[in-house]
Amino acid sequence: MGKNNLIGGSIWEEYSQKVQDLMNNPQNMGEITEEQAKEMGAKLIVADFGAESCGDAVRLYWAVDEKTDKILDAKFKSFGCGTAIASSDTMAELCKGKTVDEAVKITNIDVEKAMRDNPDTPAVPPQKMHCSVMAYDVIKEAAASYKGVDSSSFEDQIIVCECARVSLGTIKEVIKLNDLKTVEQITDFTKAGAFCKSCIKPGGHEEREYYLVDILKETREEMEQNKLTALADAKTAESGEFGFEDLTMVQKLKKVEKIIDDNIREMLIMDGGNLEIVDIRDTDDGYTDIYIRYLGACSGCASSSTGTLYAIEAILREKLSQNIRVLPI
C-alpha cells in the first residue's frame, strides 16, 4: 500500500521503452523451416511451452550446428500479452550465438534484465514477471529436445499448477533464485496458482499432489539448511580465524568443552574433583556466560569460587574470547 498504489490501472506505464518497442515490433518473430535449417547446415528444433487455455503459449525455433552445439538462429511465436511477446523475443535474441548448454543457463532474470532501459529499473511490473519465466521454460524444452532427453522423466517436470503448467522444478528454482517468501510472489513469478487456485493449498477446486504452501515451506527449509551447511563448511575450512562470537551456541559449547577437556579437566581430576557444563548462554550485553557445576572434591572447596574459578575463566578467555564469564552454580 501507500501513495503509489492507491491509484491503479498503471501496468502499461511500468513497461520499459525496450519492452514497448518489442511489443510493437518483435525482432525474432516467425518460424525457421526445415529447408532454412538445412541451408545453414543445422538441425531444426521446435519446442512448445504453455497452451492457449492457460493464457500464454510460446513456440521456440532453433537452428543448431550439430558439430559445435551452437545456436545459429532462433525465432519465436507467442500467444500472450505484450510482455510475453517482448520476453519471448528477447529470449530468442539471447539464445543466438550461444551453445545449447550455455542457452540452458539463461534465466527469466536474464531475460527481464535484458529488457531494462536502465539497470536499476525493472522492465515490467512484478505481476508480469511470469512472462519471462515462460521464456526460460521453453529454452529447457528445446534443449531437452535437442539432446534427446525425455524432459518428463525429470523430477523437475512434475506439474504443480496444471492451469499455467508450472513444474515443481520451476517453482523451486524460482523460489531459490529470487528468494521468494510468499505464495503470492510465486504466483507473480510463475503464474502458478493464478487460475483455479487448486494448487495453492488443500481444499481448493480439485485435489492436488503438491501444494504451493508446502513447496514454499520445504524449499525455504532447504535453503536455510544449505545456508547453515555452507556456514559450517566455511568455518571448518578456516577454523580459528572465525571469531568465537560468530559461532552458533552448539559450536560455542563444543569449543568450550574441548578447551576444558584439553587444559582444565585433568588438573581438577588430579586434585580429586571435576566439573560439568550445565548451560551456556549469550547475554544481551555481549557476554557468553558458561554455567558450571563442580564435582567431587571441587564442590565445596573454597578455591572453587576464587582462584580455581579465575584460572578456568582466564584459560577460556585466552583461548576463545575475552567476553566469556564462568559462573558456578
Binding site: G55, T187, D188, F195
Partner: peptide
C-alpha cells in the same frame, strides 16, 4: 477480461 490485463493477474 483477460487475466494478463488485470493488476492482480487474476482471470
Amino acid at each position: 477480461g483477460s487475466a494478463c490485463a488485470s493488476e492482480a493477474l487474476e482471470s
